[in-house]
């Protein structure tokens, strides 16, 4: 079985992330680029499954600028057998629909029994990629799984939805997204880091995907036209610290008075 995990390099949430006020795009030079943690969890989940069941090939795939390649090496060091990096300058600022088309084309090329993604990216968009890919690839999608069980012909799991817990299942091939409830990602061991250097890392340009893009009805030329436009971006003024007091036995009263003053209690 071949499982493709979609991993995504994002600005590190531990740093100050900067948005260019001119383009509305991430200023990538301003912060360190790391694999989005949720996609590391997706990879961890799949690697554990591969370790337990054998006979599973784990491929990490991303569409990201060429500079972020080291993050794919990390995916290989964690245990993916191969990596696919779609990098093309024409994709800078690609909107969600174009991103989905390109990833779908690459997934078609790779041919996967199961595609696993995170439930949402920390760099701004919000968990629509899996269903967009499912639509383009004509696959069933089981999104936001908190538990997951992969068998030879199906994937099942549970998710929290409006008012309760839903058990869902899909026959393979399928696409799923997982949430933070999945296990913490491992730190690559030295052996993994050394081994990663020998593993295949394929870099694809849009031209390499021309045939597949045609196949899903989204030809190469479509890259040019953005569908949504950013009108304005403004930075909020940072918040300032207010009054800091140390409890001397009266702090509770102080808080109660503060709340009453502001009509919050």
């Amino acid at each position: 079985m071949k499982i493709v995990v979609l991993v995504k390099p994002v600005p590190d949430t531990f740093g100050d992330r900067v948005l260019s006020l001119e383009t509305g795009l991430a200023d990538r030079a301003a912060s360190e680029t790391v694999l989005d943690e949720i996609t590391e969890r997706a990879l961890e989940t799949v690697i554990r499954h591969a370790e337990a069941s054998g006979d599973v090939e784990v491929v990490a795939m991303t569409m990201a600028p060429a500079e972020s390649q080291s993050t794919l090496r990390k995916a290989l060091a964690m245990g993916a057998a191969a990596a696919v990096h779609i990098a093309d300058e024409r994709l800078a600022g690609a909107d969600l629909v174009r991103t989905a088309q390109v990833l779908a084309a690459a997934l078609r090329r790779a041919g996967a029994d199961l595609v696993v993604t995170g439930n949402g990216s920390t760099d701004g968009s919000g968990g629509v990629m899996p269903s967009m890919l499912a639509e383009l690839l004509e696959l069933p999608a089981a999104t936001r799984l908190e538990t997951i069980e992969i068998t030879a012909d199906a994937v099942r799991g549970t998710r929290e939805t409006d008012g309760g817990t839903q058990a869902v299942t899909a026959p393979l091939p399928a696409i799923v997204s997982i949430t933070e409830r999945m296990p913490d990602p491992r730190f690559p061991a030295l052996k993994g880091i050394m081994g990663a250097k020998k593993k295949p890392l394929e870099v694809l340009s849009l031209d390499d995907l021309a045939g597949e893009l045609e196949g899903i009805g989204a030809p190469l030329e479509e890259t040019e036209e953005p569908r949504s436009i950013m009108l304005a971006a403004a930075q909020r003024p940072p918040r300032e610290a207010g009054e800091i007091i140390t409890d001397d036995g009266t702090a509770a009263e102080r808080i109660a008075a503060f709340l009453a003053d502001r009509r919050l209690a």
């Binding site: 509305g24 569908r227 304005a232 971006a233 930075q235």
Partner: peptide, 11 residues
């Protein structure tokens, strides 16, 4: 919440 951004449809 560090930035406020607005976007619109081109078509």
């Amino acid at each position: 919440g560090a930035y406020d951004v607005s976007s619109a449809a081109s078509a």
